[in-house]
């Protein structure tokens, strides 16, 4: 069953605090280490880089507008499959 709308999105309080501190200090490129994979990505997180723990390491996740409403854990897989490079391309943003 979906979460009730009246509750609002769930975010661990420490994630909000760390994000606000990063914004206030102006150090937007620093990686904000978090362990809360269950927290929802909010609009005020756009442009910040979070290091989302996957059980082994913190995976850097640069938040963009299209990620709002998803959970942080969705961008930090706990299992890694390398596959083949073939003709896959990486874009430097």
């Amino acid at each position: 069953m979906a979460r009730s709308v009246w509750k609002g999105p769930f975010v661990d309080a420490y994630v909000l605090k760390k994000a606000a501190a990063a914004r206030d200090s102006g150090r937007l490129n620093d990686v904000i280490k978090i362990w809360s994979r269950r927290s929802t990505i909010l609009p005020q997180f756009v442009g910040l880089t979070f290091g989302v723990y996957n059980g082994q390491k913190h995976v850097p996740v640069l938040v963009t507008e299209d990620m709002i409403g998803q959970k942080f854990g969705e961008y930090s897989p706990t299992r890694t499959y390398y596959g083949h490079a073939a003709d896959k391309k990486a874009k430097r943003k």
Binding site: Y75, S76, K91
Partner: peptide, 19 residues
């Protein structure tokens, strides 16, 4: 090089790094 849906990521490994 990895991509989990956010930005592309370079995975770097070197002698001075534990992992």
């Amino acid at each position: 090089v990895q991509n989990h849906g956010a930005t592309d990521l370079l995975e770097i490994f070197g002698p001075g790094l534990k992992t």
